[in-house]
Nucleic acid binder design. Structure first.
Lengths: 135, 135
DNA sequence: CGGTATCCATTCTGATACTG
DNA sequence: CAGTATCAGAATGGATACCG
């Protein structure tokens, strides 16, 4: 009988050196949580167009504060998903760019963004139906 | 010149009735936030194997509390991503199942889970490199 | 079994002010 | 321009107890 954890593909069991996000202790959970941060996915997608400065990103991501942007960038850098390049001019210039690993992940998370934008209408409709049924 | 918001594909600008998650006021942000919840993605993927009961999901998702599972399922139901079917037996039986819309999204978020499980090793390595460089 | 209600700790987020 | 520090409020998550 099929159970959760028996995935159709072979990338599944925590045993044997592999990862399985269904298991509580699996470090994969940390990665999933991080992508759940408010800005991580948007930053990755924003960097699709090549290296970008702090200020550019800030203007591109509506509503992000400087603090949260810096924090998000640091975490992504620590995880090897983006690089941070400092040019010691005056004033200093800092560019962020996707690493190959980050570019790979970007392709995946962009699908989420595209899906959300494409299906937001259907979701909004489902919500109003649900809400009126409850009332 | 390319700017954030000028996406390579055509699903981009908020203007003209379309959605763009880069904009603060875009409702797409709500969807992204929801997928960022700790359990939403895992629930969607777990339902890949067909209808599942509350208890089955609870056992399958390591560490989820009853409250959070119920809350997550409610939200997904409200958004039209899953259905909730009550069989009035004693004790009552409740099954959850992906809607076509939810199955569509599941395919996308599963890629995230697969990516995370496949690349967790590289990320962990990057982290330790970063941490030792800081020290 | 599935769900609700309450309380509480932790985390996340953002506004503000300040440094090089 | 990029970043840090601090503080306060909001949101999230979870333990517990109870209901149909």
């Amino acid at each position: 009988m099929a159970e959760i954890g028996d995935e159709p593909d072979e990338l599944c069991h925590f045993t044997g050196g592999r990862y399985n996000a269904f298991l509580e202790a699996c470090p994969t959970r940390q990665l999933l949580d991080e992508l759940g941060n408010k800005w991580s996915c948007l930053v990755l997608v924003a960097l699709s167009w090549g290296p970008m400065r702090h200020g550019e990103l800030r203007r591109g991501l509506g509503g992000v504060s400087q603090k949260m942007l810096t924090q998000t960038l640091r975490t992504l850098e620590r995880d090897g998903l983006i690089t941070r390049t400092v040019t010691p001019s005056v004033p200093v210039r800092v560019d962020y760019e996707l690493t190959p690993l980050g570019a790979d992940l970007r392709a995946v998370v962009q699908q989420i963004k595209v899906w959300a934008e494409a299906n937001m209408g259907a979701v909004a409709e489902a919500r109003s139906t649900y809400d009126s049924a409850v009332a």
